[in-house]
Design a protein around this nucleic acid. Structure first.
Length: 573
RNA sequence: GCCGGAGUAGCUCAGUGGUAGAGCACUUCAUUGGUAAUGAAGUGGUCGUGGGUUCAAUUCCCACCUCCGGCUCCA
C-alpha cells in the first residue's frame, strides 16, 4: 500500500476521531505531508497537546474496526445539503462549481469528507503502530491572515513501527545540530532579553568565524571586480521617500528618529546609499559595469513570532552588492553572478539547495520588454550552469525578476540565502544615468544581489550543515596543544608559539586537568586538531596528532603537521 | 502579529501556598596525568518582569517580556 495514501487516509481517521470526541467541530482540510498528515479543525474549545493522546487512542479504535473507505460522486446540490453545517466545506464546494470536475466524497465510519482521494480500501490496511500525533499548531484557513485561525493537528506516519521510531530518532539527532544549541555550546553567539529580541550578540569565537567568512568574501569579490563602500546606519527620511521604501516597506521600518527637526530612519536596506555613490559623478558607458559591495547592517521590524535564532533576526548584515550596467551587459553580469554564487556556496560545503526563478507579478513597474529581457537573462544563466530550478510564477518583486537560493536547516526548513534581483525601480526613482557612446544619457540596469544573504542567517545554516564541526579553515579554534604533564609545558608553549606565528588559531590547554578530560573537552568543542606532547614527543621532537572524530592519527614533526594543515586549509575542506 | 507550549544557578533540569535543590561549569586544595569525565570542599538564585489574591506567592490569578513548535510574512 502506498504510504501517501495511508497518510491521507489517516488524516480522515484523525478527523473521524475528532468528530467523535468534539462533535461540534467544523472541519477544514486534511492532506498528507512528506512525513505524515495533518487536519485543520475549528474546535469548540481549545485543545492542548495532552488531548492528542486521547485522540490518538480513538483513532486506533477506529482503525481496529476495519472500516471501509467508500467513495461516492454527488451533485452540487447534494453536497451543499450534506455539508450544510460545515462552513469551510461549503466554501470549497462553492469553488468547485466553476470546475467541470464531479464532486466526490469519501466516507469512513460516520465521517464523510469532501475529497478526491485516493484512500485505502479499508482501515485494516493502515499499520496500527506506524503513526503518532505529534503537535498542534495554529493555521489560518486557506493560508490567509485575514481568515480565522484553525487548529492544525500534525501526525507522522510510516509503513511500520520501526520506520516511525527511526524517524523520531532522526529528528532527535537533527535537534542536536540546531544552530541555537551549537551557538550556546561552542560559545559563538548569544541573545539577551535586556538587549532585545532578534538582536544577536557575537561572542569572541563567533566573531572570529564571522571575520573569516567576511575575509573570504572580501578576497573573492576583489577578484570579481567589486569596489567596496561603507554607508551610514541611519539616513534622512527623504532618502527613503525617494527610494519608495517609505511607501512600500514601511511596516518593516522602525519608527523615525528625530534629529534637529528632521526625521531619520534606521536603514532597512543598503540600496539607496549605493545609488547615491553611483550618482555622485557622471558615469560613462566605459565605466560600466560598476559593482559596489558592502557588508551592510540593516534593521527590519520582523513580527515577534517569526524570529528564529540567527536565521531570522531584526538586525543583520547583508553581504550586499549592486551592479550597475548597460542592458547589453546584463546577461553576462547575471551569468557571472550565478557562477560566483554557486562557487561561494560550494566553498562552504553546500551541495543541496533549492533554486527559484521568480517572475513578473501582477503589479509591476518597468516595461514588459525589460522584464522579459531580464527574466531571460536569469533563466539562461541557470540553464548554462545546468542548475535545477523551479519557476516561482508571479513571485518576483514589483520592481524586477529574481533568482533566490534556499538552503535547508537540520529539520528541513528552507531559508532563503542567495538572492539576485534585477531592479527597474531605483534607477528610475533616483534618475540614474550614464553617458553612452552617442553622447546621450541613458538609464542603466541595476542588479541587487546578496550571495550569503545575511551573515547571521548564513552562519546559522552553516552550523547546522556541519553540525558544528566546522572545517579547519572556518574553525575559530583550529588546534589545541596539550602537554601531558607540567614538564612538557615549555615544549608545548614553543609549539603554540610557532603555530601562532604562522597565523594558525591555536590554544595551549595546560595541565590543570587530566589528559583525558582535556581531550574530551576538545572533542566537545569540536576542535579539528589536538596535539598531545609528552616525554616521547619532547624526546623525538615531534607532535602526536589527534584528528577530530578520528582519534590519534600518529606522530609527525611540526613541519610535517603544518604542511598537512596548510593543505587542508587551502582546500577549504 | 496569530494559535499552542514554556521561562527555577553560567548550562541541562528536579521541586513546593510557609522565601529553593541535583549534575555539569566555576573557585580552592590534593592529584602530575599518554588520547572522551581524578577526588574532596566551596562560591553561586529578587524562581523572566510588574501588578493582584492571601497572614504568607517561586507556586494561584491578570498583564507584559523572552524563548520553543506552527501559520502568515521574509535575507
Amino acid at each position: 500500500m502506498n504510504i501517501k495514501t495511508i497518510r491521507h487516509s489517516l488524516a480522515h481517521i484523525l478527523a473521524h476521531a475528532v468528530l467523535d470526541l468534539y462533535p461540534e467541530t467544523k472541519f477544514g482540510i486534511g492532506p498528507a505531508t512528506e512525513t505524515g498528515f495533518y487536519y485543520d479543525f475549528d474546535l469548540p474549545s481549545p485543545i492542548s497537546e495532552k488531548d492528542l493522546k486521547k485522540i490518538e487512542k480513538r483513532m486506533k479504535q477506529i482503525i481496529r474496526k476495519n472500516l471501509p473507505f467508500k467513495k461516492k460522486f454527488i451533485t452540487q446540490k447534494e453536497a451543499k445539503k450534506l455539508f450544510r453545517d460545515q462552513p469551510y466545506k461549503l466554501e470549497l464546494i462553492k469553488e468547485l462549481k466553476n470546475s467541470k470536475e464531479k464532486i466526490s466524497i469519501y466516507q469512513v465510519g460516520n465521517f464523510v469528507d469532501l475529497c478526491r482521494g485516493p484512500h485505502v480500501k479499508s482501515t485494516k490496511q493502515i499499520p496500527l503502530d506506524g503513526f503518532k500525533l505529534i503537535k498542534t499548531a495554529g493555521a489560518y484557513w486557506r493560508g490567509s491572515e485575514k481568515n480565522p485561525m484553525l487548529t492544525r493537528i500534525y501526525g507522522i506516519a510510516f509503513a511500520s513501527k520501526k520506520e516511525l521510531e527511526e524517524y523520531l530518532k532522526q529528528i532527535e539527532e537533527a535537534q542536536k545540530r540546531d544552530h541555537r544549541v551549537l551557538g550556546q555550546k561552542l560559545e559563538l553567539f548569544m541573545f539577551d532579553e535586556e538587549i532585545g529580541a532578534g538582536l544577536p550578540l557575537w561572542l569572541p569565537k563567533g566573531t572570529i568565524l564571522r571575520k573569516i567568512i567576511e575575509n573570504y568574501l572580501y578576497q573573492e569579490l576583489n577578484k570579481a571586480g567589486y569596489q567596496w563602500i561603507i554607508s551610514p546606519h541611519i539616513a534622512n527620511i527623504q532618502l527613503w521617500k525617494t527610494s519608495g521604501h517609505w511607501d512600500f516597506y514601511r511596516e518593516n521600518i522602525y519608527s523615525p528618529i528625530k534629529i534637529d527637526n528632521e526625521e531619520y530612519l534606521l536603514k532597512p536596506m543598503n540600496c539607496p546609499f549605493h545609488v547615491k555613490v553611483y550618482n555622485h559623478k557622471i558615469r560613462s558607458y566605459k565605466d560600466l559595469p560598476i559593482r559596489f559591495a558592502e557588508l551592510g547592517t540593516v534593521y527590519r521590524y520582523e513580527k515577534s513570532g517569526v524570529l528564529h535564532g540567527l536565521t531570522r533576526v531584526r538586525g543583520f548584515t547583508q553581504d550586499d552588492a549592486h551592479i550597475i550596467c548597460t542592458k547589453e551587459q546584463m546577461e553576462k553580469e547575471i551569468l557571472n553572478l550565478v557562477k560566483l554564487a554557486i562557487k561561494v556556496l560550494k566553498t562552504f560545503g553546500f551541495k543541496d539547495f533549492e533554486i527559484y526563478l521568480a517572475t513578473r507579478p501582477k503589479k509591476f513597474i518597468g516595461t514588459i520588454s525589460n522584464w522579459q529581457k531580464a527574466t531571460k537573462a536569469l533563466r539562461q544563466a541557470l540553464d548554462k550552469m545546468k542548475l535545477k530550478y523551479e519557476i516561482d510564477k508571479g513571485g518576483g518583486a514589483f520592481y524586477g525578476p529574481k533568482i533566490d537560493i534556499k538552503i535547508k536547516d537540520s529539520l528541513g526548513r528552507p531559508w532563503q540565502c542567495t538572492t539576485i534581483q534585477v531592479d527597474f525601480n531605483l534607477p528610475q526613482r533616483f534618475k540614474m544615468e550614464y553617458v553612452d557612446k552617442d553622447g546621450k544619457r541613458k538609464e542603466p540596469i541595476m542588479i541587487h544581489r546578496a550571495l550569503l544573504g545575511s551573515i547571521e542567517r548564513f552562519v546559522g545554516v552553516l552550523l547546522e550543515h556541519y553540525a558544528g564541526a566546522l572545517p579547519l579553515w572556518l574553525s575559530p579554534e583550529q588546534i589545541w596543544v596539550i602537554p601531558v604533564g607540567a614538564s612538557h609545558k615549555n615544549y608545548a608553549k614553543k609549539i603554540v608559539q610557532e603555530l601562532q606565528e604562522m597565523s594558525f588559531r591555536v590554544k595551549l590547554k595546560d595541565e590543570k586537568e587530566t589528559l583525558s578530560k582535556r581531550i574530551r573537552e576538545g572533542e566537545i568543542q569540536k576542535i579539528p586538531y589536538i596535539l598531545v606532547v609528552g616525554d616521547k614527543e619532547v624526546k623525538s621532537k615531534k607532535v602526536r596528532i589527534r584528528k577530530r572524530h578520528k582519534g590519534d592519527i600518529g606522530e609527525k614533526t611540526l613541519a610535517e603537521f603544518i604542511k598537512l594543515i596548510q593543505n587542508e586549509i587551502k582546500k577549504r575542506k
